[in-house]
């Protein structure tokens, strides 16, 4: 035991000359594009015009957020509530799909297949006009919100949307979460089914009810496995929230369309908007990455 030789040195990952060649080609390509835009297309960049729509100076000269930032805030609110609702819908329908009850299984299956096989745009149009045209008036949501006291109205504006647009916002959240919920449902189902049969059997053998088997044994293990695809789906939800701009919800993409139209600075607007989306989504990715690491150190 005493005079064993030390373990061999680990191989380090390293770029090869071929990799450097590829980098060179990529950089040359980018320089060429910049050159084309700058010299051949003769496009005059006017970043400041669009920046004014991100933040502007008010009468006193203080910087205040302008429409693009408030649009971003709407996107974040939309994504926040959409994520919560989609997670609940996905969990419930995912559980239904693994149920022994044929009725629950069929209904959940119908929902998932319906949504996954319709383009998101078509789904949103059909559903939005149904929800906002029929259901919202029937429930009297708008009257209810308008009758709220000034204090609760302020809370609603902070958490959701301007009072006058509340039912619109709600319809957007419902559309988005129904749409993403179908994909989360599939992830949840796959996660539950990936837990080996022996775990179910052992949990049942000590007499746990189906609810307790799921809560104490199956879901805690499944959640570790599905965290990466789940994180991906939540980030997709943020990006997909752009489609509700089509039903006049004034989130980032909707506002950007208007800014691009008024300023005619199309490239600048969309590049800035792209950067804003990237910043949000990449931060989320980092956050989920951390959570994943933390869960893995919770030992197996």
């Amino acid at each position: 035991m005493t005079d064993r030789r030390p373990p061999p040195a680990r191989k380090k990952a390293r770029f090869t000359p071929f990799d450097f060649l590829m980098f060179g080609i990529l950089i040359a390509g980018m320089i060429y594009i910049v050159y084309r835009v700058d010299q051949v297309l003769v496009y005059h960049w006017e970043w400041h015009t669009v920046f004014e729509y991100v933040v502007r100076r008010d009468e006193t000269g203080a910087l205040v957020p302008n429409v693009l930032l408030t649009g971003l805030m709407s996107t974040l609110r939309l994504a926040f509530w959409g994520t919560i609702a989609a997670a609940i819908i996905g969990l419930v329908t995912g559980l239904c799909r693994t149920s022994s009850n044929l009725f629950l299984r069929s209904v959940a299956r119908l929902y998932v297949e319906l949504i996954r096989n319709i383009p998101p745009l078509v789904f949103i149009f059909v559903f939005y006009f149904f929800i906002s045209g029929q259901i919202m008036p029937a429930l009297g949501i708008d009257e209810f919100v308008r009758s709220a006291s000034p204090e609760s109205a302020a809370v609603v504006e902070l958490l959701f949307s301007p009072i006058g647009l509340f039912s619109n916002f709600l319809a957007g959240v419902i559309c988005l979460s129904l749409f993403e919920g179908a994909y989360i449902s599939e992830i949840v189902r796959a996660g539950i089914q990936s837990i080996e049969k022996g775990q179910w059997e052992a949990a049942r053998a000590i007499g746990l009810s189906r609810f307790n088997v799921l809560r104490d044994v199956i879901l805690p293990q499944a959640i570790r496995k599905i965290l990466p695809p789940l994180a991906g789906q939540f980030i997709t939800l943020v990006k997909d929230s752009a489609i509700v701009s089509l039903i006049s919800i004034q989130e980032l993409t909707y506002v950007a369309t208007e800014v691009a139209a008024t300023t005619t600075r199309v490239f600048e607007t969309w590049i800035i908007v792209g950067f804003l989306y990237f910043a949000v989504c990449y931060s989320l990715a980092l956050l989920f990455g951390r959570l994943e690491k933390k869960m893995q150190t919770g030992r197996r």
């Binding site: 022996g198 775990q199 059997e201 052992a202 000590i206 007499g207 044994v217 293990q221």
Partner: peptide, 28 residues
Amino acid sequence: ERVRREVGMVFQHFNLFPHLSILDNLTL
């Protein structure tokens, strides 16, 4: 469920709950 609570079972592949400590496996 009543029957299962009165009958203990030991499996070929143990089937312990990997996400729980030994103590939690027993107290669940």
